[in-house]
């Protein structure tokens, strides 16, 4: 599908203003897996006829990684440059598919002069549904699904319900992991861990979490693993490109990649959308 994407510069050239800015984020721009999430979200924005802009080559790292790694200088350099850019375009509303950028731009830019209304894409999708701009089919049958709460979305910003509501909306009953919502267990990527080797230990954090997800999907229950179980689709859903990478790696580590998909909520939703 051909995607329709306009940069902020193009909007300005046309002399018009978009209703919202889609902050793609570094992962969404460069990570091959996360790029698919970006495209899925833009597909939906196109179908729902949302007037949105991206910053394109003008976008730069939000500074989340630098900040959690302790490099406050680098964080504030990034933040102040981004704020200058966003304010020069007079941007008021931002949506992003990355909980880290969501948290940083929404909460940490404020006191540096960047005050915006920021939405995680799951919040924004719910709004589209409520405004009747997006219609979804209940297409998912014979699927077992569990949802992993990203730390910076869940505990960090208390967004537990919107992702679940979307999954329910397209017909899922979620098998909740034992550690979920405010007790969710980190995927292992936060705090700049994504970019470094873990410290010495007896297990990697993403493996611990993946094992819990697989157990929740029914893989440990020998009685359940029959042909009907095998025919069913099995999905670990999440709402963060970093969690997605960590859990995908975990699933591969357990040799389950042919049986279990790790998908972002928006990827699931985009398969359930009705074309107008």
């Amino acid at each position: 599908m051909e995607l329709e994407v306009k940069t902020m510069t193009e909007w300005v050239q046309e002399g018009r203003k978009p209703e919202i800015l889609f902050w793609v984020g570094s992962a969404g721009s460069f990570d091959d897996r996360a790029k698919k999430i970006t495209r899925s979200f833009v597909e939906i924005l196109n179908i729902a006829n949302v007037d949105f802009a991206v910053l394109g080559t003008e976008e730069s790292a939000s500074g989340d990684v630098a900040k959690r790694a302790g490099n406050e200088f680098l964080f504030q350099m990034q933040a102040l440059m981004n704020i200058q850019l966003l304010n020069s375009y007079n941007i008021k509303r931002i949506v992003t598919t990355c909980p880290h950028d969501y948290n940083t731009i929404k909460n940490e830019y404020k006191s540096l002069g960047g005050v915006y209304e920021v939405f995680h894409h799951t919040e924004f999708l719910i709004q589209l549904i409520n405004k009747n701009k997006l219609k979804l089919n209940k297409i998912y049958k014979d699927t077992i699904i569990t949802y992993h709460d990203p730390c910076y979305l869940g505990r960090g910003n208390r967004i537990y319900n919107q992702p679940r509501a979307l999954l329910n909306y397209v017909g899922f009953k979620i098998n909740e992991m034992h550690r979920s919502k405010n007790k969710s267990f980190c995927c292992g990527a936060g705090g700049a861990q994504m970019f470094k080797e873990p410290e010495k230990g007896k297990q990697d954090i993403n493996i611990n979490r993946t094992l819990e997800a697989l157990k929740t999907l029914g893989f440990e229950d020998k009685k359940k693993i029959n042909s009907t179980f095998q025919q069913k689709r099995k999905i670990i859903a999440t709402g963060c490109p970093f969690c997605n990478t960590m859990l995908t790696d975990g699933v591969k580590n357990q040799n389950k990649e042919s049986e279990v998909e790790v998908l972002d909520i928006v990827e699931i939703i985009s398969k359930a959308k009705e074309s107008f």
């Binding site: 995607l3 994407v5 460069f30 495209r39 080559t57 790292a61 500074g63």
Partner: peptide, 19 residues
Amino acid sequence: IENNGAPWPFPASDRLKWK
């Protein structure tokens, strides 16, 4: 991040390649 505005070593000019 300092040199190309991303934690990965990709240039900002590639930022729209996801399209």
